[in-house]
Amino acid sequence: MDITWGAGAANPVIWGWLIAVYLFLAGIAGGAFLTASLTDLFKKNGQARVIRSGAFLAPVAIIVGLGLLVFDLGRPLSFWKLIFNVNFGSVMSIGVFIISIFTVLSLLYAYLVWTSVKVGSKVQVRVGRAANETAATKAAGTVGGRGIVAFLGALFALGTATYTGFLLSAVSTNVFWSTHLPGIAGVPFLPFLFLVSALSTGLAATLLGAGTCDDLTVYKKIDIVLIVIEILLVAVLYASVRAVFFSGNLAALFWLGVVMIGLILPLLLSLYGVSRHKNLVLPSCSLVVIGGLALRCFVVYAGQLFK
């Protein structure tokens, strides 16, 4: 029979790079917010630049991500219907609320951080710059109830980062996406992987945004831990699904993008940097961010191309 008979096969890729980038950006947003808010909440004399970078990055990333998501809709202008028609059984429906609240909180938090910077700048003339910033942010935190926003936002940031994993893992008919934790049926795997990746990429992006800073050792150490966990998770994934998912064009994306660029190289760079007290934030964090994007693309495409 001629191949054309009965119309060709449909394009198996339903969610393309727009959705992959959206999932990546949502992860960045969650991770960045957590970096900023946890610094803000738990670290005395927290790094103001880190807080500011994370606080500003989070809303930008999530809004750009949501923009891509809306653009990818069949009817972009009808996105508001997602809010008025709810299906509690649908991960996406729940996710809509988590992300919406997170977006609002991240904007509010960014605003609070931004206003405190302005307050700070007024006293800049009198006092030294670095000391002043810390004081200013601290002052604003107590004044504006920023702690509450940071705390609530952190919860929803966690939800957002995890949600991106749940979104895919809930597709029970997609054997790759719905892969569960080895030995524990019912506990999906992707939310863990995406959460760790979100924290890692969010932290990395925040550090990139923070620019040169005093002492980032603690962040670098956390990053190393996250990368190691992620390596373990990716290894588990590789071992628990069929080899076909890592074949073809996606083999390059996986081994080069996810494994080499995203995990091995930054790990080596970070270890080297920390041990030698060298500032390798820029190359290391850039690689982590690129790797995070590669991971989302890989997961989104692999699940659809191989069924």
Binding site: I14, L73, R75, S78, L82, V171, T173, N174
Partner: peptide
């Protein structure tokens, strides 16, 4: 009227 075209259903349908 309710559909926004998110394509989630399409990813879920094993029959394309």
């Amino acid at each position: 009227h309710k559909c926004v075209g998110c394509k989630y259903c399409m990813t879920a349908c094993p029959y394309d």
